[in-house]
Design a protein around this nucleic acid. Structure first.
Length: 138
RNA sequence: AAGGAAAACCGAGUUGUCGCAACUGAAAAGUUGAGGAAAGUCUGGGCAACACAGAGCACCAUACUUCCUAACAGGAAGGCGCAGAGAUGCGACAGAUAGUGCCACAGAAAAUAUACCGCCUAAUAAAAGGUAAGGGUGAAAUCGCGAGGUAAGAGCUCACGCCGUUAGCAGUGAUGUUAACGAGGGUAAACCUUAUGGGUUGAAAGACCAAAUAAACCAGGGUAUGAGGGCUGCUCGUCCGACCUGGAGGGUAGGUUGAUAGAGACUUGUGGCGACACAAGUUCGAGAUAAAUGACAACAUAAAACAGAACCCAGCUUACGGGUUUUCCUUUUUU
RNA sequence: GGAUCGGUAGUUCAGUUUGGUUAGAAUACAUGCUUGUCACGCAUGGGGUCGCGAGUUCGAGUCUCGUCCGGUCCG
């Protein structure tokens, strides 16, 4: 499944950085969830520069008071995404933005995070495929 | 050996695969990559802007002495007090004789005093006078205790002890000690007094570059008879001064720098009881900007505590699994 | 990153300036009265480690220090 070049890299253009954009995506409330992760997503059609996935990790300060724990969760999320994002295949005229939000109460293990993120990415792929076929029909 | 006290230190590494940030490099690739507290933001400073930084009041902080330090509420050495069997630990540790206030309830009385039960005076009682030893109240009762003294008593007198002032001696000094004199409730983490110190604001400070627009509209004030401002609570002084305030709206929200070689660290030597200072030599590498250290496997296997740099230092405080070293104390046993 | 305010019955707040020994009000809760019944109303009652730990004091919700938690402001 993975391509020959740039298999698992996580470069700058795959990160969602704008705080305005993150607020917009979370406010749209288009999400799928499986404990302990909630995934907000937003698709945009763009003819010139498409085919890019951007992702951001959100951990509430209320859930984890210490910066160490928040960093830990964000790193686990990023690692799980980095190893598994090749599940997603999107067409060249589409941009996808994702926000992973942690909704659990205790520090997760890497194995559970990885498993859950694979399932979420698969369901996301099916949703995107439905959207694409819907657009084509229109 | 057991129990305890103090000080200093460590805060897991190696290899492989995948990945992140900075730097080097044409590229391949290579090098480096969180802490002892990075934390709390409790002190002090550097740095920067505001008048190169004014005056007075207010306000705040500190409070045994000498020294160290860029500075401090920090540290060292010492004095005094308290705790402990000791090693040691802890201490907002100036002033109540500058003044004002407060001291609930109980109690006669809570501070220029006063007298409930008592005691004494005359033969007794009442009344009157003299007393404060004893009782009782209270957290605290006119210094404690003994002797003299007296009608009974009282710092009324004396010795000893507590406290203050002055003088002598020892000490740089806090202080200790001896003598003389003097007063006698507590409270200053009550107001306050004395001494010393503090200009204000913080890197979201500030500097530069680029991009964009509205020098427009409405209302009020002002234009030298002075609006308003100069990042301070008030007053003064001084400087700038033609725009200022509000409403409704429009635009931008990028980059570089500040920003990581410093009151740096280590070793040796000299001076000092010590904190520390001086000299010589050696050595250095996080610098991000939605924000970098992670995942998996193996290595004797269990990797675990508190915890993540955001301008930088010096300290303090708080959190901390496990471990190492040194010095000292007490008890028991043996020699 | 910096500045600043708060924490008191189940809930919302007083009381902290000037320390004083029953820590109060409203609401909620419980019981009784009222009513044919419920609500309203009336009466009574229970309920508090004053966030936590030290210190000062005879005595601390109040003063001081440390600590934990929560909020607000600064482009």
């Amino acid at each position: 499944m993975p391509h020959a070049d740039a298999k698992f890299s996580f470069p700058e253009n795959k990160r969602l950085k704008s705080s305005q954009r993150i607020r917009f995506i979370v406010a749209q409330r288009k999400s799928i969830a499986k404990y302990p992760i909630k995934c907000f997503y937003q698709t945009d059609f763009c003819q010139t520069s498409g085919g890019n996935i951007r992702v951001a990790m959100l951990v509430s300060k209320r859930k984890f008071r210490h910066a160490v724990d928040r960093n830990r969760v964000k790193r686990l999320f990023r690692e799980a995404f980095r190893l598994n994002y090749n599940i997603l295949t999107i067409p060249n005229n589409l941009n996808l933005d994702i926000c992973w939000m942690f909704v659990g109460q205790e520090l997760p293990e890497f194995s559970t995070v990885s498993k859950v993120s694979i399932e979420l990415l698969k369901t996301l792929q099916t949703i995107i495929n439905q959207n694409i076929s819907h657009e084509k029909n229109n």
